Amino acid sequence: MQETSTRAGSASGPTPPATSTATPDWRRPPDPGPTARRSASTSSAARIAAHRRLRQTFLLAGRAPFAVNVDSYLYTTDQPTPLELLPIKDDGTPVPGALRLGIAPGSHRHEASIPLQTAVEAMERREHPSRLTRSYAIDGTEKTDTVNDGQEGGR
């Protein structure tokens, strides 16, 4: 009588690779892919350019923001308009490399004028004052339509 013994894989072919070689190395994070790298590169370049503009504005006008939040820069001005902090040439055109207002790439939009006392009170509550930009209009008045009555999508 003949005795047969089979080992795992011997009858069905080669053994599958060990799980440690089939899974990616736990110390190396997976590659995010070209789209994520391109997006990170674009946002990094925009952030660097914005910081250069902030520095140039500080050097030319002597004005620095008192709060920065991602793409929001808060400056103090005497009037509810950002025009006094923008450096301009003698002919009235904006200085290259400094902050500019407008819709062109690299320009910034005036979103709101927040009373300084309100911003200080928010900072005393340990809140970032840029959270107030949705509550105030560009002329410094408080908006009354900031709440959607609990409805999503603004409808």
Rank of each mutant, 00 (worst) to 15 (best):
A61K: 13
A61L: 02
L132M: 09
D91K: 07
I138M: 14
Q79S: 07
V147F: 05
A50V: 01
P82T: 08
P94M: 03
D25V: 01
S130A: 13
P24M: 04
P96A: 00
I114C: 04
P96G: 05
R131T: 12
D149T: 10
P96Y: 00
Y136D: 13
E84S: 15
S130I: 03
R53T: 13
Q56C: 02
P87V: 01
A49F: 06
F58E: 15
T35A: 14
S20E: 15
D139Q: 03
Y75F: 15
E111D: 13
A104S: 09
S10R: 14
A22W: 10
D31R: 01
G97I: 05
T133L: 12
L74Q: 11
S43E: 14
H51E: 09
D31Q: 07
A45Y: 01
T19R: 15
I103D: 15
L101D: 08
T15D: 14
G33N: 08
T76D: 11
A119F: 00
D90H: 13
S130T: 13
P94I: 05
G33I: 03
S41E: 11
A45G: 08
I88A: 13
G9F: 11
P96C: 00
G154K: 05
T23G: 05
T76E: 15
G97N: 02
T146G: 11
E3Y: 00
R37L: 07
V95I: 06
T133K: 15
T21I: 11
V120Y: 06
H110V: 06
R131C: 06
L85N: 02
Q151E: 12
P24R: 10
T144D: 14
S113G: 08
I88F: 09
T23S: 08
I138A: 12
Q2I: 07
Q117C: 00
E84A: 14
E111P: 07
A119T: 06
L83E: 15
T77Q: 00
D90G: 10
T77I: 01
D91V: 04
T57H: 02
S130P: 03
A64S: 14
T57P: 02
P96Q: 05
N148V: 05
R63S: 13
E111F: 04
I48C: 05
P24W: 02
G102A: 04
I138G: 13
L116N: 05
P34N: 09
T133V: 07
L132I: 06
A45D: 07
T76N: 05
L85T: 00
P87E: 06
T133Y: 00
E142S: 10
G97C: 07
P105F: 01
L74K: 07
A46N: 13
A67C: 09
L101G: 02
Q2C: 04
D139I: 01
R100C: 02
T133P: 01
T141N: 04
L83P: 01
T118K: 14
T15H: 10
G97T: 06
G92Q: 04
L132P: 10
P87R: 04
